[in-house]
Design a protein around this nucleic acid. Structure first.
Lengths: 150, 150
DNA sequence: CCCTAACACTTGTATATACAATAAAAGTAC
DNA sequence: GTACTTTTATTGTATATACAAGTGTTAGGG
């Protein structure tokens, strides 16, 4: 849907401003979708993100800074985010022996299982996307966004 | 910068997943920039957004639902957001005569002046963008994102 | 007119987030 | 070893946000 309709706006200053708002809006739009889906699993999108990061590095554990670097939002609540997931038994954390400032954070079996359950659910959204855009088109998006952040 | 570098990720499942994350990440990235700039003016990006919406419709006042529809995030804190701006004297609100459930919200002179002060600051970011992407390229982004949200 | 439903907004509450201050461990220089 | 700096994580606090429940207003039957 055209951004003008989404935001009930008749016009934007120019295509650059339109693009800025379009990217922010679409990003939000995608995140809202994810958040909705994850709610049924009692996960926030950030928590999900952390779990996926840990799966990605598994079986190698990560420390908090590693996680923060890989996160979508880099705020300083990684400690509490991880603690939440630990309470749910989705990951473990222990002090690092070689450097006791660090913690070693690892996804658990239960965490792995939850992600496995979520994979097909997320896949469904992915299929929606496939219907709307060709591979060539998503490649273009990726390329242009990377360029934009240069 | 490539998304892989930004997120210290070696690879993504496919280009579709990469695009999803790329859009969310870039949207965040743009918003963080805006937030930083606005902080000096003691405004959140949502507050700024509301002010711009009001300027857009000025001199016609808007009610809360109108604003909510035009906002980037559609949560239910429009009341408090508007109240914050009112306390700063950037907008006025009064009960609507014809339908007393509604409120008429209007940007003030002070609000207009603040936006005018911010215009060139935001313009600077806009110029950065111009250096990185051609008009044709931003048009492509706009077109593809609109298509994605269909 | 009375009853109910829909509407427009507000408020309460629990949670999330940003940012700064703090703490503890490790590294470095003397 | 002591003083200083840097690294890594935690905590405090103020603010923001989501969601649900509540309030007052209007509209539509019967």
């Amino acid at each position: 849907m055209k951004l003008e309709e989404e935001l009930k706006q008749t016009r934007f200053k120019d295509e650059y401003q339109r693009a800025m708002l379009n990217i922010i809006f679409t990003g939000n739009w995608l995140e809202v979708w994810t958040t909705q889906v994850l709610k049924q699993y009692d996960l926030s999108s950030q928590q999900f993100n952390v779990l996926r990061i840990l799966r990605g590095s598994s079986p190698r554990p990560l420390n908090l800074l590693d996680i923060q670097e890989r996160m979508m939002d880099r705020m300083s609540n990684a400690t509490r985010l991880v603690e939440k997931l630990r309470q749910k038994g989705l990951l473990t954390r222990k002090q690092c022996d070689s450097n006791r400032r660090k913690v070693e954070i690892e996804i658990t079996e239960k965490g792995q299982a939850l992600l496995k359950e979520l994979d097909p659910v997320m896949e469904k959204n992915h299929l929606e996307l496939t219907k709307k855009l060709t591979v060539a088109e998503v490649n273009t998006i990726n390329e242009l966004l990377d360029k934009l952040r240069d």
